[in-house]
Amino acid sequence: MSLDMLRKPNSRKKGLKMLVYGQSGTGKTVLGLSFPKIVAVDSEDGYAWYEGTDRAKNIVGILDTQSFEDLSNLLDDLEDSIDEFDTLIVDSETKIHENIQEALIEVEESRALRKGKDVLDANLSIRSYGKIKQLESRLQNLKVKLASQGINIVSIAQAQDEMKDMGSNKRIKIGEKPNMAKNAQFDYDVVLRLFVKDGKYMGIVEKDRTETYERGAEIENPSYANWAKRLTADDNKGNVIVKDFGKDKEKSKVAYEETVVSEMPFKDQVADYVSKLDGQDKKEAFAKKVKALTGSGSLSTLTEEQQSKVLTYMNDNKLEAA
């Protein structure tokens, strides 16, 4: 790896990525509404009672949906309006997560019907689980990209019991976790679990990269104000560095495909290249080029030197076969 790929650490503007989760009635939505200039994705119709009240004064706009596709399109569109809002709230991530699962189980049921199988026996296949992970990873990367441009991300999730298998068909509750994409909490700067104690809304800090609070700290009525000083500090001003990790996956895919092809026998590499050429005219032009380079029209008779010439040509012109 060239050192030219590295950047120097610097002060720059960045948004806070916060994950808030808890049981019903613990103040999750109220915490989210304390953030500035909000675009909210309301998947539970939970904002209806706040609209038109002082609680909703920071809302710029609301998208009512549980659809992964709607949220994905919104995240793409928001990049063109980056100066019109400061915070994106997804309330709740749980409903989006469930929507993806429900959509894919319906696909599996349709497949079962087409194959004459009992719909009740249809389960999510390994392929579908992979698709769920792919879709949710794309959403997370889009959120990270917005945060790198200075937008606060507040993901709100319902809590679910975390269980431990004790053997002999016995399981015990050992805690709670957010009901959303598996391991998604690692993408966030702050993770708060909300609960009610002695009639007060409380938040326990499970993670805080901003170092505003220590892990395990309990905060009464947590809100944007608890992190406002850190978010407006001098080291969170200036230019932005856009982080588009979604592109990294595409680069990895291309690099992997190139590695696989390069390890194929020569004839298979040529066949792969030709299969990607668009139109018979391009395929005929390639065959003529091979003969011009090698003096032969038969791949099986080419020497290693002649094969090398053909491979070099294919590599230099791989965009033709894209």
Results as ranks from 00 to 15, higher is better:
293 L>Q: 01
165 D>G: 02
156 I>A: 14
269 Q>D: 05
278 D>K: 15
239 N>G: 11
8 K>A: 06
107 V>F: 00
262 S>P: 00
33 L>S: 15
125 S>A: 08
179 N>K: 11
213 Y>R: 13
153 I>R: 02
110 S>Y: 02
70 D>S: 00
125 S>K: 03
242 V>M: 14
244 D>H: 00
206 E>I: 14
148 S>G: 13
41 V>Q: 05
217 A>S: 15
253 K>D: 08
68 F>Y: 12
133 K>P: 02
315 N>K: 11
10 N>S: 11
105 I>S: 06
115 K>F: 01
29 T>C: 09
60 V>R: 05
187 D>A: 14
12 R>H: 11
172 I>F: 06
188 Y>K: 09
208 D>H: 10
210 T>K: 14
231 L>H: 00
62 I>P: 02
106 E>Q: 14
122 A>H: 05
280 Q>T: 10
290 V>W: 01
28 K>R: 07
125 S>M: 05
199 G>R: 05
233 A>F: 02
320 E>I: 05
32 G>S: 07
281 D>K: 10
50 Y>M: 01
294 T>E: 04
30 V>K: 12
282 K>Y: 12
229 K>M: 08
140 Q>W: 04
115 K>C: 01
132 I>A: 07
82 I>Y: 11
285 A>L: 09
310 V>A: 04
315 N>W: 04
172 I>A: 09
321 A>L: 14
128 S>V: 06
322 A>Q: 06
6 L>Q: 03
170 K>N: 09
80 D>F: 02
202 M>H: 11
285 A>Y: 07
202 M>E: 08
31 L>I: 00
155 S>E: 03
14 K>C: 08
109 E>D: 02
214 E>G: 11
2 S>V: 01
293 L>P: 06
94 T>P: 15
54 D>I: 15
288 K>L: 09
29 T>S: 14
251 K>D: 11
273 Y>E: 01
317 N>H: 15
12 R>V: 08
67 S>E: 03
221 N>A: 08
106 E>W: 04
10 N>M: 12
226 N>A: 15
221 N>L: 07
184 A>W: 05
54 D>T: 15
31 L>C: 01
187 D>N: 09
220 E>P: 15
300 S>H: 00
283 K>N: 07
149 Q>D: 01
35 F>G: 03
111 R>A: 06
72 S>N: 07
183 N>D: 13
192 L>P: 07
112 A>S: 09
310 V>Y: 02
300 S>R: 00
303 T>W: 10
81 S>C: 12
